[in-house]
């Protein structure tokens, strides 16, 4: 991707930015790349293995990167929503970043996967994507690849199956899944919107969320995490991809997103001016559950 490499080198040489964050070829597939020297810009790539949402590196939890000054970051159309989330919540000034939007034809589930995309190996969030042409970017690069193969979303189907169960059966399912959580916090660290410098889960006095990886503590952790991300999660899928225990975290995230959309008419957006739904309210919000 010569266009991306040339632009990165130019931005660095002109000192428009102090750092370019993109993707490069690693020993096991694509991986995030950090380029501060224009001579290294040739490392940058973009293809269907570049699944990482690099907006996570713009989080205020990464002050060492902010030390580079202005940062240029390569983003797919969907990643722009995470940048918008940070701007919306005053965690990032839009003028402090240069967004290098890459036209996208869908990505694999894992950066270690290779080969052409099929209905089988396409990441679920790419199904029905409407932002293959990245919005609100400073530069938009590359040719628009063909649309990814179409199929039904897998998670929507799985959520409907779970919804159809009774409480005991759903509880049994999640007890089994969440019992495997080792509380490594990878799901939090990788998330572009888990911006708290001190997470509630790290507070031990009082221990609102027990830090030991017991199933009950894990329920409290995941319920809390999901609620803190309600109306903020951008469905990048990074939490589920990072999870070493293979817990289907996106099922929870998608469920909450559907609730937020149904109740408050809000869908995650790349427009930072639209207020987040939790933190806003309307006098006539539904309250059929309140006596």
């Amino acid at each position: 991707m010569k266009e991306l490499q040339d632009l990165a080198a130019k931005l660095l040489a002109e000192k428009t930015v102090g750092l370019v964050i993109g993707w490069e070829q690693g020993p096991r597939g694509a991986r995030p790349a950090f380029v501060a020297d224009p001579k290294d810009a040739g490392r940058l790539i973009f293809d269907n293995r570049c699944v990482h949402n690099l907006a996570a590196y713009l989080s205020p939890r990464r002050p060492h990167l902010r030390g580079f000054g202005r940062i240029a970051v390569a983003v797919k159309g969907c990643d722009v929503r995470a940048v918008a989330g940070l701007v919306r919540e005053s965690q990032l000034k839009r003028e402090d970043v240069v967004l290098l939007g890459v036209r996208c034809g869908g990505v694999h589930d894992e950066p270690t996967d290779a080969g052409p995309l099929t209905a089988e190996n396409l990441a679920d969030r790419c199904v029905g994507c409407e932002v293959r042409e990245p919005p609100r970017c400073d530069h938009v690069l590359g040719e628009l690849p063909p649309a990814p193969p179409s199929r039904d979303g897998r998670r929507a189907g799985r959520i409907a199956e779970l919804d159809a169960l009774d409480h005991a059966a759903r509880f049994a399912f999640w007890r089994q899944e969440l019992s495997r959580c080792v509380r490594c916090n990878a799901c939090r660290q990788v998330c572009p919107l888990c911006t708290c410098e001190r997470c509630l889960a790290d507070k031990t006095d009082p221990p609102w969320i027990e830090s030991s990886p017991h199933t009950r503590a894990n329920f409290a952790w995941h319920a809390t995490r999901a609620l803190h991300l309600a109306g903020r999660c951008v469905d990048c899928g990074e939490c589920e991809r990072a999870c070493p225990a293979g817990i289907p975290l996106n099922l929870i995230g998608r469920k909450v997103a559907a609730v937020v959309e149904r109740r408050f008419g809000y869908r995650t957006t790349d427009d930072p001016q639209v207020p987040a739904p939790i933190g806003a309210w309307k006098p006539d919000d539904g309250q059929e559950f309140i006596r």
Binding site: H167, F171, I278, D285, I290
Partner: peptide, 28 residues
């Protein structure tokens, strides 16, 4: 008003995790 939105989402979230939200009474 702020609480009402959070409670509404919380209720459906724990329901999805298999905890019966009828364990909780919300009232004014």
């Amino acid at each position: 008003f702020h609480a009402r939105r959070r409670f509404a989402v919380f209720r459906e979230l724990i329901d999805f995790l298999g905890l019966d939200p009828d364990r909780i009474t919300f009232s004014w």
